[in-house]
């Protein structure tokens, strides 16, 4: 099966800045694909390469099997939901949504009907007569989505679409976007720097750092089996364990990771394990996050709320199942 989007050793350098550097990528048709990474890691540049606003300085891009280099944005069957929505202030909502059909020469009655349907799809029926300035941030976001979807793109690109929304609205929109993607079967490529958002929504996640992809995999892969220290650290604050420590438990001199919730915390009297002292406890609602000091190594553990907490400075013993200890690709 041909990939929806495929990158072969794609680079986009701006002078000395390697915004995207020798990236290989395959997104399957109908997939919800997330690009996750810190600020400046090249996510937006990747999207712009797919949309056609940037040309690669090396490598090749294909979209559904067709070479994309040199094809202008308006001839690609790809649409974008921009981070600042980029609605047209001089047009009302209906004409904003119908814009793509208008420039394709579709008649007024037909394109307005399609736009109404798209607005209903994003749950904004009857908003067509308003101006963009008369909508809330969340509503503008939906209009931007409808404006892209009305063109029935093969690939929809979303650049931090929920970035400007408050927490509650964000969570609602996450669910809606996911449901919409399932219903329409369009390939979604979704950029975010929020790991929770990427893990909860995507079929697969690519973790970016410094213009390179560090790891691609399912949310479980990324979360439980990070391949590098960077991924372990960035995706959900795993404990990163140095090679000397890992060798004692696995026999291999490699970097390892251990999820905070895999650590059991007990009193010092309970036999063998890693001896540690409690540094601080952070109440997080459903859980409490403990910062521990094991002979100079800082570890984090998570215990359910309601557990009786040890005193600060108290001597403790940490235990974990050895199969929870994940060995990373990096050797010591």
């Amino acid at each position: 099966m041909t990939s929806a989007v495929s990158f072969q050793k794609v680079s986009r350098h701006f002078g000395k800045v390697k915004a995207v550097d020798a990236v290989d990528l395959d997104v399957a048709p109908g997939e919800f694909f997330a690009m996750l990474g810190p600020s400046g890691s090249g996510k937006t540049t990747c999207l712009r390469l797919i949309a056609g606003f940037e040309q690669p300085t090396a490598g090749s891009i294909s979209i559904f099997g067709e070479r994309a280099e040199g094809v202008p944005p308006y001839r690609r069957n790809v649409n974008t939901v921009f981070q600042d929505y980029a609605l047209f202030p001089h047009l009302n909502i209906l004409d904003n949504v119908a814009y793509g059909l208008m420039v394709k020469g579709i008649g007024k009655a037909e394109r307005h009907k399609a736009a109404e349907e798209a607005l209903a799809l994003v749950r904004l029926p009857g908003f067509g007569g308003r101006r963009p300035s008369q909508l809330s941030g969340g509503q503008r976001q939906r209009v931007a989505l409808a404006r892209a979807l009305v063109n029935q793109p093969k690939v929809l690109l979303l650049d931090e679409p929920l970035g400007a929304l408050d927490l509650k609205l964000r969570e609602n929109m996450q669910e809606e976007l996911k449901a919409l993607q399932k219903a329409l079967g369009i390939t979604f490529i979704f950029v975010t720097h929020d790991q929770g958002e990427a893990l909860s929504m995507a079929d697969r996640v690519a973790v970016f750092n410094d213009g390179k992809i560090m790891q691609v995999g399912t949310p479980q892969d990324i979360y439980e089996r990070p391949s590098t220290r960077f991924v372990a650290d960035f995706v959900g604050s795993s404990n990163v364990l140095p090679p000397d420590f890992v060798q004692r438990y696995s026999g291999q001199h490699r970097w390892g990771s251990l999820r905070p919730e895999a650590i059991r915390v007990g009193k010092a009297t309970r036999g063998d394990g890693v001896s540690a002292r409690l540094v601080s406890a952070n109440y997080l609602g459903a859980t409490t996050r403990l910062a521990l000091d094991a002979d100079g190594l800082r570890l984090h553990a998570v215990v359910p709320a309601g557990t009786k907490l040890p005193e600060e400075g108290e001597a403790l013993v940490l235990t974990f199942n050895r199969d929870q200890l994940h060995l990373m690709d990096e050797a010591g």
Partner: peptide, 20 residues
């Protein structure tokens, strides 16, 4: 980004100038 949005939605340079 308004100009890019127009191109993204299928308008060429002339259409973008005229409509946006």
């Amino acid at each position: 980004s308004m100009i890019e949005a127009s191109m993204d939605l299928g308008a060429d340079g002339f259409q973008t100038f005229r409509h946006v």
